[in-house]
Design a protein around this nucleic acid. Structure first.
Lengths: 201, 201, 201, 201
DNA sequence: AATGAATGAGGGTTCATTCAT
DNA sequence: GATGAATGAACCCTCATTCAT
């Protein structure tokens, strides 16, 4: 009888996967349930049986996406990499860059549906706490200017992440990648004015 | 007979304004022509008489928006403010932050419609050239690390601008504004590691 | 002051001409007043000033077309050509064949609008009387089987004319034209079974 | 499960029937999907589910109509009636005369949509071949003037059929029917000049 | 007298959702 | 539990017609 539940969950997973991909690619409002059903090889009605409505599906998919993101972040933070690598891993989080996420999808995560909003805020607080802990460590180790408030640095990370995501086409271009990433690290570590290798007045 | 043309242009302007606002607020595909017509106090058909189709309206609005943005940038660059103020003015360009731009709208600017795309690219090249000239000046004056390629710095500006736009809610909050903006300047000028007022190893 | 009226009539004529051409080419219901106005280089509202409504224009155009057709027929009948040439001229009336008349236009002539219908019937009776007189002459001269009722022969003419109009593409093809027209005459003069040059049992 | 398919096909059939009738009566462009849906007692959207679009419905209906016509022709040709009866049956094919076919419908069969056009041409070639075979037989049996090319005779049939269809009101009138049909046979068999019962010069 | 602007009604089409099987 | 069929609402768009200039 376990096979029943497993199959059911496999179908739900297929629908989620199809929906996420299409939402990211074309924007939520331009993806119809028929599109999703077609991609997941399922009848549109099945989506109702599993998720109740399109909004229900969106909720489920966004939560699912957020959960996976949190897992990735936790994996990064719990790893034993050096401090700076963790910072970079978070800013350039590959999953975020790998594809040009439809802005409408990201927007859906943040606003509108109150249930999603509340779920997102819970998850976000959790993640903020983890990253904040990392930053404190960075300050103690002299890698981060202790005069900067944790709040500001978090915001800076967020700004960079979103800006990079919006420019994912460039950051994923393997030709530019090498040189740009190097210089980019210079900038966010040592600023526009100059890095450690430069004579300062 | 001049009144004719003036009235016509006023109506078109009203439609453009309403459309831009709604597009930015809700995303293009979720805004119906009836919505726009209602907000502009005009019959939906009038939009067709003026712009031909929804796509025609979108094209017109995006071009209009780009033109206004370019004007703002030019005003900033041609001004006689000190170098660093210009940099800040560009990064925090108030018009960009003033409202939570719908991601779908920005997306529309860049992709899809080939006419828009071509128009955007022309405008973009022009703007890049102007900002690049400013950066060269900054390097000569020792305000920008001359080891950084202009390309990278432009990209950094773009990332910051987009990231800030995506977080506009925070940056427009007058409570946070003061302190955060100050520290933010610290970061993008002197990096995470530290600024000029800090003892360096 | 005569110039005023003349100009007015010239514009009406231009509108009529444009309308007729478009009606014939695409069918009445698929031609918009804007199309006609554009082709006649006139504002759509002018059509209202001149003809009152689309239906008014249709009425006017159909009457105009009928009048011109009657004139052509009268010219043929009043001419001094030999009898058989007149018959052929009527059946193959070039104006009817010159272009693939939209069936919808012909249909409009006959049915629906009662005013058109009545006008058509008056004109038709007149024409029938003229052609009938010709047929009587033909019978007296032994060119037409006197056993055939005039009514039947008129109907036969009508059937041929309409059938030829419907096949105008073929009858206007200059390649086929020569041979086919020759044999066609054979058929309608001497029937399927055979002509005068053929041995009969 | 067979009931599913049967029901579906019944509904499609009902829609086809309603569409054909309306198309023939009023012309394609003047018939809305709502009209068809109303007549077939179906929701307009159902037409989309079954035929994809109005054009899809038109395609389907025309093909359906062509198929039925071919079947009727085949039945006539394969029958064991005498030669002349077959000829008459084809020219006066009752289905063609039964109602005043909208010219726009016939036009739709021939032109515009390339898929319909190609389908029609295939069917048409097939039918032409069959009728041509019949004509050859007619010539051998002395019923048709062997000097007439098969091509011309086919065209003559077509002209007659279309002309008769255009005059269906008269040919279906039971009062006229008897006498006219008789004389009509006289004409197309022995021509205007005269029949076998008549003294010829 | 003639035109540009504006509109109400209607058409084709899509889509989230429900119903019957 | 899953699917094919059906639908109401909404959207983009067209067009004959009227209004203001």
């Amino acid at each position: 009888m376990d096979g029943f539940i497993r199959r059911r969950e496999q179908k739900k997973e297929a629908i989620r996967r199809a929906a996420l991909e299409l939402f990211q690619g074309h924007g939520i409002s331009r993806v119809s349930l028929a599109d999703i059903a077609g991609k997941a090889d399922v009848s549109p009605v099945s989506i109702y049986n599993h998720f109740g409505s399109k909004q229900g599906l969106i909720r489920d998919v966004v939560k699912w996406y957020l959960d996976r993101t949190v897992e990735r972040y936790k994996a990064i933070l719990d790893d034993h990499r050096p401090f700076m690598q963790k910072i970079e891993a978070i800013i350039f989080d590959k999953q975020n860059i790998m594809r040009s996420y439809s802005a409408e999808f990201i927007q859906a995560i943040i606003s509108q549906d109150p249930e999603i909003k509340s779920y997102f805020e819970t998850v976000y607080q959790e993640m903020v706490a983890s990253v904040a802990a990392l930053l404190e460590q960075g300050k103690r180790e002299g890698m981060i200017n202790p005069e900067l408030s944790t709040e500001t640095v978090l915001l800076y990370f967020d700004v960079l992440t979103k800006g990079i995501t919006a420019n994912s086409a460039i950051f994923n271009n393997p030709v530019h990648n090498q040189k740009i990433l190097e210089q980019f690290s210079q900038i966010y570590l040592y600023g526009l004015v100059g890095g450690p290798n430069r004579n300062r007045p």
